[in-house]
């Protein structure tokens, strides 16, 4: 259990919230780049995540970001391209310098927010998060424990999927071919959905019969609370990101801040 794993889930949420909101406002390349490096460093060092695992999780994100960087220069409006250098033109497609910069900024902004959220997702158990939400943020416990009960169903769902697949195979249905995607969806989705709903119904009855939700007060087996290390983490994370922003501002690399990016 690393330092980040031991922290309260809510303290991690509180720590990464304000920087993530700030990042949504940025419009240049340097701010997200700095935050990406800082966050990856913190996650790898304090979370003790193996580099390979991190890279594996990052790969699909990088694909998304690459899509933005490659596609946006071709699609931006003429207002942005006005007065900037023409990099190259190919047929009817003209690529301008500011268009490329805009694509880069969009992709990196997204990547920065995704990397920030990885700090949370890689080091937090969903069940712990729900427990903390129930006990500390006063989420209705019927909804909270209902969610926990439903989350337990995921492995069973996988099993059911294998079962349906085998049942189809026994009947000689291979499910190959891209044209019959509708039929395939129907053959798999309906049995899975119906069996899971039936399961939910049964689970609800058994929970009701054990007087789930009958009383306003509740006792807990696993307690969740904020410790001193949580406050220290929140405080230092906020101070660190403020310092990063101030340094960027000092060197005039912060760029314009805008919510809807209609500044051009």
């Amino acid at each position: 259990m690393s330092y980040l794993h031991r922290l309260n889930p809510l303290s991690k949420l509180l720590a990464i919230g304000p920087p993530a909101i700030f990042l949504a406002l940025t419009t240049n390349v340097w701010t997200p780049l700095l935050f990406i490096n800082l966050t990856i460093g913190i996650t790898l060092m304090l979370g003790r995540i193996p580099l390979m695992r991190y890279a594996k999780v990052c790969a699909p994100m990088l694909l998304i970001v690459l899509g933005f960087i490659l596609l946006y220069p071709l699609l931006v409006s003429d207002r942005i391209n006005e007065g900037s250098e023409l990099l190259f033109s190919f047929g009817f497609v003209d690529v301008y310098e500011s268009g490329v910069l805009f694509g880069l900024a969009t992709g990196l902004r997204l990547l920065a927010m995704l990397v920030l959220s990885l700090l949370f997702t890689l080091t937090t158990d969903t069940a712990d998060l729900i427990r903390a939400l129930i006990q500390q943020w006063r989420v209705n416990y019927r909804f909270g424990f209902g969610t926990l009960a439903v989350l337990r169903f995921i492995p069973i769902l996988m099993q059911q999927f294998q079962l349906v697949k085998m049942a189809h195979q026994v009947r000689g249905y291979t499910g190959k071919g891209s044209r019959r995607i509708m039929e395939r969806t129907q053959r798999y989705a309906l049995p899975l959905l119906s069996s899971s709903l039936r399961h939910a119904e049964r689970m609800a009855y058994s929970m009701d019969s054990r007087a789930f939700g009958a009383y306003r007060t509740r006792t807990y087996f696993r307690r969740s609370s904020m410790a001193r290390q949580d406050y220290i983490f929140i405080g230092s994370f906020w101070i660190g990101s403020t310092l990063a922003v101030l340094i960027l501002f000092h060197f005039d690399m912060l760029g314009k801040l805008s919510l809807f990016k209609t500044y051009h």
């Binding site: 909804f143 439903v150 609800a204 009958a214 306003r216």
Partner: peptide
């Protein structure tokens, strides 16, 4: 752990089955 009266809910309020069915749709 002291005895307290069970909560009375209106008919329109969510019961356990509603919560679980809704959650299960989300999971699937």
């Amino acid at each position: 752990l002291a005895y307290s009266k069970p909560v009375q809910r209106r008919r329109a309020a969510w019961n356990t089955k509603d919560i679980l069915i809704t959650g299960m749709i989300g999971v699937v």
